[in-house]
């Protein structure tokens, strides 16, 4: 049922895009189309056969693992079932570059799959998802089993305490105290490294940590400032951020290990949205709403053999400029399509 709907949408969108260009049989010509400069609609580019991008394009949808419980990054709206957040926006911007369309319409061609921390690697390895965009900190252990594009964001690990707490001003102050963080987070390792005498309590998620903090079972919760900001934003009378970050957490896009062409494509696309302004827009509409200031764009880490070399597959469609409205072009497309139809 869902598949059928997507397929219908796919046909409609392809038809519209094609019709808008007046060249339904060759969508790639859209790269130079006028509407592309006016709005954010992109035509689907052509990729070399055998690449992951070509495969995704062929199946007409991209499967993306995101968090469903991470405010600001990937959080499911219980009313609509829609997932929202910065990670989701990044996923859409990636999808547009492969499947064409604009960030609104492309949503129908993305299958979001909830990825909790512990199933991220198997999801990628088994091909259950094409990419994981889920507050996924790049580290060497993980790089042994999967690869990362990015980082597309660098979070800073900080400490959250109860509003009335004045005893904790830096990570050192956590020594001898009970601190909460989530299982398997790099936050745990950082605390153990920087406050070795802290008593670290580990839960499945940060909701439990926040509860334990409010219940005075622990004196502090420590993890990425972006995550903590969400909690402080919702309970400003109870909680506060220490605001003394002690480590960098580069978030990357997880993909299958050894898929260099795909990784380069993702990195190139990230570079585009960094420079094109879409990255900043995405931040403002999501994390910015939690009171976080838009930071500088991060520096990509094109590690390994592939290095920074670009390949022919990076010939994506033109990037949409900031500003122009997608709806204008869509309207134009549908009117054209109705006139041809």
């Amino acid at each position: 049922m869902r598949r059928t709907r997507w397929f219908v949408w796919l046909v409609v969108v392809v038809a519209m895009v094609g019709a808008a260009c007046g060249e339904a049989d060759d969508p790639t010509t859209a790269t130079g189309g006028d509407d592309n400069e006016a709005g954010s609609t992109t035509a689907a580019p052509t990729f070399d056969a055998g690449t992951t991008m070509a495969r995704i394009q062929q199946k007409g949808e991209i499967t993306v693992g995101v968090k469903y419980d991470q405010p600001g990054f990937g959080q499911q709206d219980p009313a609509t079932g829609e997932v929202e957040g910065f990670d989701v926006e990044i996923a859409k911007l990636i999808a547009v570059a492969i499947l064409g369309g604009d960030v609104d319409s492309v949503e129908d061609k993305i299958e979001f799959v909830e990825s909790v921390s512990k199933n991220r690697e198997p999801f990628i390895q088994d091909g259950r998802v094409d990419i994981v965009v889920a507050t996924y900190t790049i580290n060497d252990t993980r790089k042994q089993v999967i690869d990362f594009a990015g980082p597309y964001f660098v979070a800073k690990q900080d400490i959250m305490v109860r509003k009335d707490d004045t005893s904790i001003k830096a990570v050192d102050d956590l020594n001898g105290k009970k601190v909460c963080t989530a299982k398997g987070s790099t936050s745990e390792k950082n605390i153990r490294a920087k406050a070795p005498r802290a008593d670290v309590l580990l839960f499945d998620g940060y909701d439990e940590c926040k509860e334990a903090l409010v219940d005075e079972r622990v004196v502090a919760v420590s993890t990425d400032n972006t995550i903590l900001a969400g909690y402080v934003d919702r309970s400003p009378d109870e909680l506060k951020l220490v605001d003394n970050p002690f480590s960098d957490e580069p978030y990357g896009i997880g993909l299958k290990k050894g898929d260099e062409a795909f990784r380069d494509f993702l990195n190139d696309r990230l570079e585009e949205i960094f420079e094109g302004g879409q990255w900043g827009d995405a931040f403002e509409s999501t994390l910015g709403q939690l009171g976080l200031e838009t930071p500088d764009t991060p520096t990509l880490d094109r590690y390994g053999a592939a290095g920074g070399a670009t390949t022919s597959t990076t010939g994506t469609g033109g990037t949409g400029g900031a500003g122009g409205s997608g709806s204008t072009s869509t309207t134009g497309a549908s009117s054209t399509s109705s006139s041809t139809g």
């Binding site: 921390s117 512990k118 690697e121 299982k183 398997g184």
Partner: peptide
Amino acid sequence: VELTDMADRISFDTARPI
């Protein structure tokens, strides 16, 4: 930190949950 929790932690440390 019982057995499953331990497995949880090891899976994170190694990025190999299986």
